[in-house]
């Protein structure tokens, strides 16, 4: 565990807490993509099956359980409790366009052709593109609530911090996971446009809105 990894995890945790807090306080999930949240639940479920096969640390296990539980709780809030506020008309990205190619790629490019390993690879690839329905929704409506942009910023920062963590691990631990690094870089690149808007607009007190 190095400082970048810890900050990355905390940023990820913060993102989830911001999202839950936003929904709970406003009693609304307006502006949030249910598709992205379903994909995240799928990511956590397929990646953390190793909870049953290997133990790494209390920290690791606790975080995994929290990520899985919070992702299903988010889906429950969106599709059941606060269903009336869910903006499904603008959440029209087709999940199968991501899940099917990513599934195929996980079969073809993996560290080892074993069920758990293929599922882990699938989750890494899927996570890298899971934000697309949310970004698509923001671009479709042309705006995002400030709290939603804080959520997206924390979520994007998490993978950027992981890249620093991988650089650190490469030099100091001799550790290098090509699949995680390439997917992590793709994931971070997808946020670049949003990072730019966040820094130039939201941090200056303006609402995030896209030019018409």
């Amino acid at each position: 565990m190095n400082v970048f990894r810890l900050l990355g995890d905390m940023s990820h945790l913060l993102a989830i807490l911001i999202l839950l807090l936003k929904m709970w306080k406003t009693r609304s999930c307006a502006g949030i993509s249910g598709k992205t949240q379903i994909l995240f639940a799928l990511v956590f479920t397929t990646r953390y099956l190793d909870l049953f096969s290997s133990f790494i640390s209390i920290y690791n296990t606790t975080m995994k359980l929290f990520f899985i539980a919070s992702s299903y709780f988010t889906i429950f809030l969106m599709y059941s409790k606060f269903k009336a506020t869910y903006d499904s008309n603008h959440d029209s990205f087709r999940m199968e366009f991501l899940v099917v190619p990513v599934g195929g790629l996980a079969f073809l490019v993996n560290h080892e052709f074993l069920p758990l390993e293929i599922l882990w690879t699938f989750s890494i690839y899927l996570e890298s593109v899971a934000i697309l329905p949310q970004l698509f929704m923001v671009s479709k409506t042309g705006e995002a609530e400030t709290i939603t942009s804080h959520y997206l910023f924390a979520l994007g920062s998490y993978r950027l911090l992981y890249i620093f963590n991988w650089v650190y691990r490469y030099y100091f631990d001799g550790f290098f996971d090509l699949i995680a690094v390439v997917a992590g870089c793709v994931q971070t690149i997808l946020y670049c446009d949003f990072f730019y808007l966040y820094i130039t607009k939201v941090l200056k007190g303006k609402k995030l809105s896209l030019p018409a």
Binding site: R5, H12, R47, H111, W120, N165, F175, F176, L178
Partner: peptide
């Protein structure tokens, strides 16, 4: 270590 033996990240 091989990456697949050390999926120790979240």
């Amino acid at each position: 270590p091989s990456p697949k033996d050390t999926h120790d990240e979240l």
